[in-house]
């Protein structure tokens, strides 16, 4: 009922941050080196084209989505003050991030197809182009699937950010700090232990490797099949959405 209004509200607030991100990125990548070379008197070394060619603009967007997705408590406070349910907040927030993915993914691909490829003559600008693009014989279909594939990866990154953020927002500041420090440490130690155990183990975990290559769509020809990966990403994203919906429903105003 109120989802449209809240979507509008969140979009209005957050699109400003998205715009600022692009602006800062642009300034940091193009303007700052220009100013620096002006100051140091090395203007002849400054090459707009070189920078454009190597700029990590696509990576920035993914990182931005991850960070913004972890932050939800501020908006929750304002919305619960104004009688908006957690369900509506969730739906509106997912819609806004969906729109952001369309914008960011489009900019990324436009940059890659119209700036990066013409300038570098390299076509392997992302995982999809490196492994899956040749699976499609029609160039346009490949672009379409590149869009879907990249969007799913961005969605995955965003949803992981939301999961972490909304999980942490259930705890007090002190507990958040403890969790933030403890999780990487415990996780890292566990991972190292697991890797060691696997390496030393005489048992070859063949099914893990098999599953891995199935999901990746591995083929000896070097032209991988993207569909198992697309479906896997889709399933993971749906799973994360369910988890986030649950975590959102548990949001409460914290004692301050």
């Amino acid at each position: 009922m109120k989802t449209n209004k809240i979507t509008k509200y969140l979009f209005k607030k957050q699109v400003v941050i998205l715009g600022e991100m692009y602006l800062v990125t642009f300034a940091a990548i193009y303007i700052l080196p220009l100013i620096l070379s002006l100051i140091t008197g090395t203007l002849h070394d400054y090459s707009f084209v070189d920078i454009l060619r190597t700029s990590p603009i696509t990576g920035f967007f993914g990182f931005f989505m991850f960070v913004i997705a972890t932050l939800s408590y501020e908006n929750f406070k304002f919305l619960i003050q104004n009688g908006i349910s957690r369900k509506t907040f969730f739906e509106a927030q997912i819609t806004v991030y969906g729109l952001f993915l369309l914008i960011g993914n489009s900019i990324n691909l436009l940059y890659n197809y119209f700036v990066y490829i013409p300038m570098t003559h390299k076509t392997t600008f992302n995982i999809f182009m490196a492994a899956y693009a040749k699976f499609f014989h029609n160039g346009l279909v490949a672009v379409l699937f590149n869009f879907i594939f990249s969007a799913l990866i961005l969605a995955f990154v965003t949803l992981v950010g939301m999961t972490i953020g909304s999980f942490l927002s259930l705890f007090s500041k002190t507990w958040q700090r403890i969790l933030l420090v403890a999780t990487p440490v415990i996780g890292g130690v566990t991972l190292i232990y697991l890797v060691n155990a696997l390496e030393t183990s005489s048992l070859k975990m063949t099914w893990v490797a098999d599953l891995g290559s199935f999901i990746l769509g591995y083929d000896r020809s070097g032209i991988y099949n993207p569909f198992p990966m697309i479906i896997t990403l889709l399933l993971i994203c749906i799973g994360l959405l369910l988890i986030i919906r649950y975590l959102f429903s548990k949001k409460q105003l914290k004692q301050e």
């Binding site: 501020e74 406070k77 009688g83 908006i84 349910s85 301050e256």
Partner: peptide, 20 residues
């Protein structure tokens, strides 16, 4: 609980600040 239609009928003004 989680009901926009009903939550929208109430407004609580309190000491905590929920505005940016």
């Amino acid at each position: 609980n989680d009901n926009d239609a009903k939550l929208g009928l109430m407004f609580l003004m309190s000491e905590v600040n929920l505005y940016p």
